[in-house]
Write a protein that binds this DNA or RNA. Structure first.
Length: 532
RNA sequence: GGCCCCUUAGUCUAGUGGUCAGGACGCUUGGUUCUCAGCCAAGAAUCAGGGGUUCGACUCCCCUAGGGGCUACCA
């Protein structure tokens, strides 16, 4: 028990201490991340502690959601509610004996006292103070109760709280790793509650007791806690605990520079996972929100982040959460993924979208050369999880489609829009594109001619496909673009796509001819063409 | 109201008394091309305002403004 007062000096122990009253949001995740990075960088311990002292607002779902979010991000904790350690339990509702024994100590030493004021009494007090133009704060009226009077109340079972006896004068000082020195006048602080009348500890009290008893060496948290810190410092002092180092992180704001909230769109980490962001990209972006390496380098793998991270490079000004930048980072991370991983990820999304298994099968005229798809790295479809499923035979083609799509695929959530037409006839068609490229008689007959040429093509590989189209354009005496553009709209419903010859090849002869003819019919139709 | 924090382009940031104020996202223009993405090249855009201190302020001090936090038997 006494060694609590003198924790091991050199071991870095940090914690993330969410209250299970909502989602893991980006601000919380960023705090968790910085703690995690700091721990890993310094061979320290990362503790997850659940602060569920608010009985009314804490929920099981929230608790599970937070753990899920952290695991998705890859922020594995060393000690926590589900991983016991030397200083558990790691859920505050299971630590009440400790809070009470420490409170009793404070009571005995005269550093705290019992307060029997009722809610209405406190309201009246505050109202009076405000009427007088004073700052509302507890006036300490219960400090003076005699021991006898307290005993009497207690015996009568009167509800009460335990309050901290704040020194009325002097200053409380502490140093913050990112912002430097602070000094607060004690007169600003009042006798705050330690133990609520329901027997549970308040945040400011429990956080101190737990951080001390869990040997937390660095308290890394949002700067909304700066104003709480002097109270906590007084508590550390009264309890005889050694002070940890503090590092307060700047807030994360929405586009209008106010505190990030639901109004600004998705704030829950879960939402970004559901949007198919890569967790490493998310982590990379979050890391940059309030921290920089050298002002130049911005792309980091998780591992590189651990290596690069430092609390000294945390900035003190709040940061606006910018999804545009996050999307760029996501795209960069996606680019770096090995082909096998892209295949795995994309097939998952396709399956989720109901596009896999495909609505129609395509037999490529030649077997797909996986070496070509995977570049130098050998792509082994048989090692891929999804390959065990019903659409395993589609994977080689999918790998090629992904390759051909290249950097156009930046966000997994765009999978349907970018490659849906390879998997279903029910793909999105851009009406403007149809009107612009598929609305003339000449176009109709040209597409028919192209369909015929392809129908007669023996080897439907990319080279022959290109040769056929360009040859036809020559014979027709038109630019190949005049064939390519309507063809693209006919096959994909859009004016943009990857290399058209790859699209044709990967769509296969039968589908290509079918769509070409259908488009030719629409184009030749006398009235304005309409899809659906 | 009181106390506290923050302020470099639209956004994230580098900077720590003398720099042409650097990088990135986004944006604009040009190149590559069957479109788009990508890539390459170029470009527009910033020290919140006002006072000091100093030979010299983005950098130090003060004030103002704006934003944020705490001031709960929320965390």
């Amino acid at each position: 028990m006494m060694d609590i007062v003198a924790p091991q000096e050199n071991v870095v122990r940090v914690r993330f201490a969410p209250s299970p009253t909502g989602h893991l949001h980006v601000g919380g995740a960023r705090t968790a991340l910085y703690n995690y990075l700091y721990a890993r960088k310094n061979n320290g311990i990362f503790v997850l502690r659940i602060e569920d002292t608010d009985a009314a607002r804490s929920t099981r779902e929230s608790y599970e959601g937070i753990l899920r979010g952290m695991r998705w991000l890859g922020l594995e904790w060393d000690e926590g509610p589900d991983i016991d350690g030397p200083y558990g339990p790691y859920v505050q509702s299971a630590r009440s004996v400790l809070y009470h024994s420490e409170a009793d100590r404070l009571l005995r030493e005269g550093a705290a006292y019992r307060c029997f004021c009722t809610a209405s009494e406190l309201d009246a007090m505050r109202a009076a103070q405000e009427a007088r133009g004073e700052a509302p704060k507890y006036d300490g009226r219960c400090r003076a109760r005699s021991a006898g009077a307290v005993e009497e109340k207690l015996a009568a079972g009167a509800p009460h709280v335990i309050r901290f006896m704040m020194p009325s004068g002097g200053e409380t000082r502490f140093r913050d790793v990112v912002r430097g020195d602070f000094a607060f006048g004690n007169a600003e602080l009042d006798d705050f509650v330690l133990i609520k009348s329901d027997g549970r500890p308040t945040y400011n009290y429990a956080v101190v007791v737990d951080d001390a008893h869990m040997r937390i060496s660095h308290v890394i948290r949002g700067d909304d806690h700066i104003s709480n810190t002097p109270r906590q410092v007084r508590l550390y002092d009264a309890l005889g605990y050694r002070l940890p180092k503090f590092a307060h992180l700047p807030m994360i704001l929405g586009a209008d520079k106010t505190r990030l909230s639901k109004r600004h769109g998705a704030t829950a980490i879960d939402a970004y996972r559901d949007l198919h962001y890569l967790s490493d990209a998310m982590v990379n972006y979050l890391a940059l929100l309030g921290w920089s390496f050298d002002g130049k380098r911005e792309l980091f793998t998780f591992k590189a982040l651990i290596e690069a991270f430092s609390l000294k490079r945390v900035s003190s000004n709040p940061a606006v959460f910018d999804t545009g930048k996050m999307e760029w980072i996501n795209a960069e991370h996606f680019k770096m993924l090995p082909p096998a991983e892209k295949l795995e990820l994309v097939s998952e999304v396709l399956e989720e979208e109901g596009l896999l298994p495909p609505a129609f099968e395509v037999d490529l005229s030649r077997p797909v050369d996986l070496k070509l798809v995977a570049g130098t790295e050998p792509l082994r479809v048989d090692t891929i999880d999804a390959a065990k499923k019903s659409f395993a035979r589609e994977l080689p083609r999918l790998a090629l489609i992904i390759e051909v799509l290249g950097n156009r695929l930046k966000l997994l959530r765009d999978v349907r829009e970018l490659m849906g037409y390879f998997y279903t006839d029910d793909f999105h068609r851009d009406e403007n594109a149809v009107r612009r490229h598929l609305a003339s008689k000449e176009t109709g007959s040209r597409l028919d001619a192209l369909a015929l040429a392809y129908e007669n093509l023996q080897y439907f590989d990319r080279a022959s496909v290109e040769e056929t189209l360009r040859g036809l354009a020559d014979r027709l005496g038109i630019e190949s673009g005049e064939l390519i553009h309507p063809c693209r709209v006919a096959l994909t419903g859009k004016t943009v796509s990857p290399d058209i010859f790859w699209v044709i090849t990967l769509l296969g002869k039968a589908k290509t001819v079918e769509r070409l003819r259908a488009a030719a019919a629409t184009a030749a139709a006398p009235t304005a063409p309409k899809d659906e």
